[in-house]
Nucleic acid binder design. Structure first.
Lengths: 151, 151
DNA sequence: CTCTATGCAAAACCTTTGCATAGAA
DNA sequence: TTCTATGCAAAGGTTTTGCATAGAG
């Protein structure tokens, strides 16, 4: 099923109503392949549909999260962002502390060990969040000029 | 070196001043072995020293983080908490989604794979944050009554 | 003395809510 | 018609700041 279908089904299941604006917002959300802040999504939606209000975007994002299409991530710098969550496999993040660029990755070995770790402590695993912080290749270059060849 | 020493050194290094209040706050912080909110720390400090203001606790916590004694954690529910970071080995969290209880754990296997994963992608590893969410042993019991023996 | 630390209150943020009206079923 | 959805503005909650004064060096 496509995302729009998932959302519609979710709405009718909760006896909520489908609306044009909700479509617009979902659309904008789906067409931006990055981790969005509410602000960013609002700006994107307004480009095409200037009348949409801030609160509506907020409210719709909450619904999208409930419907499973989207999930909220709290980064260490305090920002809250939203990411696609449907037809996207679970993944973790490698985040550059200099430039903010990030990669989405999955490491099966780690996933397996995480599951084992939880079970060993009597937990029923639900989900997890793993953010690895470091300096990316590009930023490393900028900070460590080539050694041994003073110029 | 003891924590108080680390903090003093950090302060003088930044040409900041040592003060009685900062000692009180550091003390309260060190004596509570849990993940504190600013509010909780403030309450604890005020028990002994009622004159201390909220803003001072906030400001001091920021300094403690900079000095490396403490670090900020953003949980998935949006709360911000602070944890001891000195003479505490790095650790990850197993968090119960029902009751909020958590365990601090380290899994060497996971740590190794994390490091490898970062390097494989050209990152210089700095630190990471891994929170595993699930249902703890106690909460599991409450939700799944013993099977087969109706009472 | 000089410069930082502090309490207090106000400001700045970010997110949620209330309400009157528009819109969906 | 009878709901819910929405824009707007106001309210909440949390964190930060400005300012006058106390305190450290």
């Amino acid at each position: 099923m496509k995302e729009a279908g998932v959302f519609k089904k979710f709405l009718s299941g909760k006896k909520l109503k489908h609306s044009e604006r909700r479509d617009w917002i979902l659309d904008a959300f789906l067409h931006i392949e990055k981790h969005l802040t509410v602000e960013e999504l609002w700006t994107a939606v307004k480009r095409k549909h200037p009348s949409v209000g801030f609160a509506t975007v907020y409210r719709t994002l909450k619904l999208l999260c409930e419907s499973g299409l989207c999930s909220e991530i709290r980064f260490d710098d305090g920002t809250t962002r939203y990411e696609h969550n449907y037809n996207h496999e679970h993944h973790d993040h490698l985040i550059c502390m200099e430039c903010g660029r990030f990669l989405e990755v999955v490491d099966d070995g780690i996933e397996r060990l995480q599951e084992r770790l939880m079970k060993r402590h009597g937990f029923l695993p639900r989900h997890h969040r793993m953010n690895l912080y470091g300096i990316c290749r590009e930023c490393k270059k900028e900070h460590s000029p080539v050694q041994g060849t003073a110029r």
